[in-house]
């Protein structure tokens, strides 16, 4: 089943959102607009190159995905907490997850694992708990918060 899931996920999400299978889906927090379809794969908002008509610097025929995302984040169909999440700082992409199922990565918390430096802490060379934040999420016993998304 784990081997089939990426295929199933791709089959569902590709036609609807042009999913790129980054394996760490943030669709719900970006107005259900996939940031990986931005030619610069920006995950924290639009670059400075957006055209006066709201179209993409790189692909003039395409509306900037962040212009769309911003509009859609205010959609009444969007739950309020998703709208709030729009402004959160999303961490760098973990390129190892490319091609894996974000559904699995969501359930086991793998998609929220970030390098130690991202959370601000310098790692001691012989720390007793190397990557402490990584330990718990590898052994999920309950569904993490946000699973409904």
């Amino acid at each position: 089943m784990p081997k089939l899931l990426p295929l199933l996920e791709h089959a569902v999400k590709k036609p609807v959102w042009d999913c790129r299978m980054c394996g760490q889906c943030v669709l719900h927090s970006t107005g259900m607009t996939c940031p990986m379809t931005c030619p610069k794969t920006l995950r924290n908002g639009p670059c400075g190159g957006v055209r006066e008509d709201g179209h993409c610097e790189v692909k003039p025929e395409m509306r900037c995905i962040w212009v769309k995302a911003e509009e859609r984040s205010h959609s009444p169909l969007n739950p309020h907490h998703w709208e709030e999440e729009f402004n959160e700082l999303r961490p760098p992409v973990d390129n190892r997850l490319q091609g894996t199922s974000s559904w699995i990565n969501l359930i086991n918390g793998r998609d929220r694992r970030t390098p130690a430096g991202w959370d601000g802490a310098a790692r001691e060379r012989h720390s007793a708990v190397p990557g402490a934040s990584m330990v718990e999420v590898d052994e999920p016993t309950t569904l993490p918060e946000g699973f409904h998304s």
């Binding site: 700082l89 390098p115 130690a116 991202w118 310098a122 790692r123 001691e124 060379r125 990557g131």
Partner: peptide
């Protein structure tokens, strides 16, 4: 954020 982390004394990996 990563550059600010360098000034705080660590790379993105956490390495001091």
């Amino acid at each position: 954020k990563v550059a600010s982390g360098l000034a705080e004394g660590h790379y993105l990996s956490g390495r001091a």
